[in-house]
Amino acid sequence: MEEKKIAELIDSSGNKMEIDVVTYLVSPDKLKHYVVYTKGEVRGENNNHVIYISRIYKENDCFRIEEISTDDEWIAVQRLLKQIANSD
């Protein structure tokens, strides 16, 4: 098992939760950055993992999260994910 990269997520209400950072994504133009993380949830018979993707910005000593709001961006992010997840 790979080592977990535990991080702390603070939501808009100030609630804190631990997340496990799976990886990061960078857009081809290198202007958009995303964090891929999990809360350890699995679904279905094959125990598929639920992963979450958010856009991140560097802000002081932490990262600010902005959720993906458009379909275009979401499609672009899925494309980035597939490049890694379906690679040989």
Binding site: S12, I19, N46, I53, E59, R64, I65, E67, S69, V77
Partner: peptide, 23 residues
């Protein structure tokens, strides 16, 4: 620990991946 701060209440995008993809 790395801190991620969420300031908006927008819902996060999620997706299912297989074990292999996850790995």
């Amino acid at each position: 620990k790395v801190k991620f701060v969420k300031k908006s209440s927008n819902k996060v995008k999620a997706i299912l991946v297989t074990n292999k993809q996850y790995g």
